[in-house]
Design a protein around this nucleic acid. Structure first.
Length: 254
DNA sequence: CCAGACGTTGTT
DNA sequence: GTCTGG
DNA sequence: CCAGACGTTGTT
DNA sequence: GTCTGG
């Protein structure tokens, strides 16, 4: 699964820079700056941060969306608050059937650019967070779903998104070993070719992309606690390597 | 028929 | 052990 | 997902 | 909006 990420506006703009024009990108930065954190070293989906996502509507121009998908049929603010803690991830195997996701799975798929994500390793009754990133340090593109919801109480239109998950690859299987969970999961990671299909292809084309990332291009290291009173919050320390001696003597990721 | 849910994860 | 809050 | 609370009473 | 449970 994927509940914790590291990202920054600069990473999200990678796509706009590559496929769009620099002038438009500069205008975007100015337009979005008031609404966005420049850099999240660690942010959880439960905080529902606003991030930049890319949609099929205009695949070079990002838009601002909150993490935690609010389906278009949500009736009121109470229902919104109830549902968006449950739609931070979307199980890839079921997105075309689940009421909360199926409309978006058919016609509102999106891309989320991040620098890395976090998963917890369980050992001897404790949890140890790992930060996972590309070996080459480039942004990771995640496959997501988005929707547009109108808050009838205020008239405000809210964009929101969820991260699609799939089975873990071998690295994530080693890390993500919660004893309560039988099968480990990881976010859907797309390469450049797959990004275009995810945004513009048919539902059937998109479905075929929902598989674990190839082995060998991600790396991971342990970091400080992400949750509870000992967490460091949104600080550069969140992604720094932090050694837990009791763990490093037993877990070999290679 | 209406009311209520609509999600993720997956066991010692 | 299990639920809630973040 | 993990961390932390999980109760009564009644007010600084 | 649509399905399920009662």
């Amino acid at each position: 699964m994927c509940y914790d990420i590291k990202t920054k506006v600069e990473a999200a703009l990678k796509r706009a820079r590559h496929y769009g024009n620099e002038e438009a990108v500069q205008m975007l930065i100015e337009k979005f700056r008031p609404f966005l954190e420049d850099e999240w070293f660690h942010v959880s989906g439960f905080q529902h941060p606003k991030l930049l996502i890319y949609t099929g509507d205009n695949s070079e121009m990002p838009l601002v969306a909150s993490w935690g998908l609010i389906p278009f049929w949500v009736k009121n603010e109470q229902q919104q608050l109830d549902i968006w803690n449950k739609t931070i991830n979307a199980r890839g195997e079921n997105i075309f059937e689940k009421p909360s996701f199926r409309t978006s799975a058919r016609s509102k798929r999106c891309l989320v650019y991040i620098d890395g994500f976090f998963e917890h390793h369980h050992f001897a009754g404790s949890t140890y967070p790992y930060y996972i990133q590309r070996k080459d340090g480039e942004p990771i593109t995640l496959g997501g779903l988005w929707d547009e919801w109108t808050n009838k109480e205020t008239g405000e239109v809210v964009n929101s998104f969820t991260i699609v998950t799939t089975k873990a690859n071998s690295l994530l299987k080693k890390i993500h070993n919660n004893p309560k969970l039988k099968e480990s999961r990881m976010p859907l990671i797309l390469d450049e070719r797959q990004e275009e299909i995810w945004l513009k292809g048919t539902a059937n084309d998109a479905k075929k992309l929902i598989v674990p990332a190839a082995d060998g291009y991600l790396k991971a290291h342990t970091v400080r606690k992400l949750r509870g009173k000992n967490s460091v919050g949104n600080s550069p320390e969140a992604i720094e390597e932090f050694i837990y001696p009791e763990l490093h003597s037993v877990l070999d990721l290679n």
